[in-house]
Design a protein around this nucleic acid. Sequence first.
DNA 1: CAATGTTTTTAAAAATATTTATTAACTCAG
DNA 2: CTGAGTTAATAAATATTTTTAAAAACATTG
Lengths: 410, 410
Amino acid sequence: MTLMTTIEEESVPKKSVVIHKKNLRLKSVLSYLYQEGACTLAQLADVAHTSIPSVTGLVEQLMEEGWVSSNGIVTGNNGRRPALFGLRPDGHYVIVLDSNTHDTRLLIVNPLRQIVFQRTVNRRLEDTAEFLDFLAQFVTETLAGSVIPKTAILAMGLAIPGLIDARRDLNLTYSSLNPTSQSITAWLEERLDLPVYLINDTKATALGENRFGGGLGKKHVLSINIDWGVGLGIILDGKVFQGASGYAGELGHIQVDPDGELCYCGKVGCLDTITSASSLVRRVQRAVLDGCVSQLAAQQNDVSQITIHHVIEAAHQGDAFAIDQLHETGYQLGKGLSIAINLFNPEVIIVDGVLAQAAVFITNPIEQAINKHCLSGFRNDLTVEVTKLNGAAKWLGTHAYVMENLFADF
Amino acid sequence: MTLMTTIEEESVPKKSVVIHKKNLRLKSVLSYLYQEGACTLAQLADVAHTSIPSVTGLVEQLMEEGWVSSNGIVTGNNGRRPALFGLRPDGHYVIVLDSNTHDTRLLIVNPLRQIVFQRTVNRRLEDTAEFLDFLAQFVTETLAGSVIPKTAILAMGLAIPGLIDARRDLNLTYSSLNPTSQSITAWLEERLDLPVYLINDTKATALGENRFGGGLGKKHVLSINIDWGVGLGIILDGKVFQGASGYAGELGHIQVDPDGELCYCGKVGCLDTITSASSLVRRVQRAVLDGCVSQLAAQQNDVSQITIHHVIEAAHQGDAFAIDQLHETGYQLGKGLSIAINLFNPEVIIVDGVLAQAAVFITNPIEQAINKHCLSGFRNDLTVEVTKLNGAAKWLGTHAYVMENLFADF
DNA sequence: CAATGTTTTTAAAAATATTTATTAACTCAG
DNA sequence: CTGAGTTAATAAATATTTTTAAAAACATTG
């Protein structure tokens, strides 16, 4: 599947510099249009570092290829109004597949980041070889049943949790997923006949926040995803930071308590064991059994029914016990985050995941811990925010990851 | 002071794209020549993404401006031998000023990274307003006494320890250094009539290692500098990582022991209090007083004479006590480093500073700790090395920092 | 030692991009 | 509602860069 009419000749071994430069300009035009929406030729000439006549030619080419369409004109300005150009919403769809510990979700997203099709299935990510089969089948089936023709789909992005080897596209945590002699992406690409991009879910969330959420325009962003564990997504210099192998950001498994609980990773006293949403719920359940004073005590006869949502709900209603519990988790999390802050010196920290709904009940204790455990210099340039994307950060980030990689491959 | 005959016109508000592109090409040619030494036109055309006739023009221009000279021809190859071009060693000198807790050192370095003049004065970095005066005077005096004309000097790089605000060029640790209403660099620039670049010493060391030492060609490098404290220098994507404000990499002040010693930073149980060379010496001195079995016990009547060099020397001679002490420091350091590894997922860790002389006596325990505290994925792609630059990493890195910034400003 | 093959350099031609100038579209004031 | 003032798009002219071709420099080999 070709991305676009390649400018390249058939049998030229070394890419000519003029083609290389033209591709570079096409890439920056498309990236800019993707990020900013409709733009004028002047703006595009600016970002592509070229002249208006040149960029006019590029845009014409992209219009012929179905990427771009004329998109009205600017109003209100003085003088002649510039024409606007933007990505076309039809065609060039990307599949975003999000498989996590709750369910599996497939989105078909257009270049304007609108969801044109959506399907969720109640099957959670499993550490089995069959699960990849399921994913491939799920995609194939869904596509067969949808009105969107396969040829209109450009690529797929797969966001999953776990330690992902970004060079070999393997998942070290859910290692049964890895095909015997191939990468996850190569396996899926073969089955689906589509370019596939693999990204860790937390990294996708961070990218989504950086491109379209609270971290918009910021260079260095940390995003924490509090769910089963604590995931840290890192944006440095406006790019997803992967590290040498793709494992960067394992905050959940740094040791914070040498005498702590045994973590599922095999080590002792990991941050995960203290500050994840699941450990919070476990603590609450135990306390309710022990007869604590709280509206959550109403569930005393079946504490297993208590979920993180109940705790957050209770806190919002003023339940002191719930607030204290969230405070404790937030404070411990903030302590762990302080380490990351000392090392990364970020501009924003964005709280994502289920605990984001706890709003100030989680950000306040985090800030408190940061104030105590970081030098003042770090704090002055730092804000702690809760996501405003309402859970969309992950798929938005996955989509952006796919699109930006596609553009980069020109 | 102009870097080179600017191609820019006098009163053009918006830089024309053709000038911008030419400057970009000049920059990549100069950077490449600086990094690689002598090159052929074909190589330069390659890195500048342009044609050979074009790069020939650029090189001719740089030769006229005194940057570049013809540098012999390649021998041995088949076919016509290409001419080599390289930076000229005369002129375009850069002053490297290194002020630390031991002494203050001034180097004049040519574009080939050869030291053409050197002067060390036995005055250590002080947290006083007068110290900046001293630095300026030291530079002025030295220049006046040297045969190198002031006009041949392009810029100065100042490497100092401490938390440096890279956007405002202030030192938060040695805060008395900061001029009342200016940055450190602006103040020095005014006094010396030279562009001045400020860089944290550990970051300079990391850059030196990445460009010319063990981290050569690697993308993600951590360099630890063990001296009075523990400094972590971070190279990500081949660039010095500064973070939002320039504070990135404060490994020394993450809390590793909540019940530990009080650190000079005001917090408790910082890594610095456990793993710095100075704390190691303190522990050794105490043990010697307590009558431990070691060749170091010979100094029992005046333990204050025992330095880190004695301990390392003893270890190399097989002294079990010294080896144990180094092991303990290395292991604790490795534990702290494991956190940074979990977050940065680097390719190499390079040990610098006085403890580098301890060689395997320090790297072995570090590796041991990493093996215990990091997931296997991280370890597989990671090596721990001792610097091979013999203490030159810092000034080499400072020089590279200045040169690369100068080129970038074209 | 000349012929052949290889690679760099230089020169001329072709392609491409940028500037400048012109035309078009539109406000707003009088 | 007309003309001055603005800004955008287009066209023509200019400049630059790349490509292609030819020449030069050198090694190898029969």
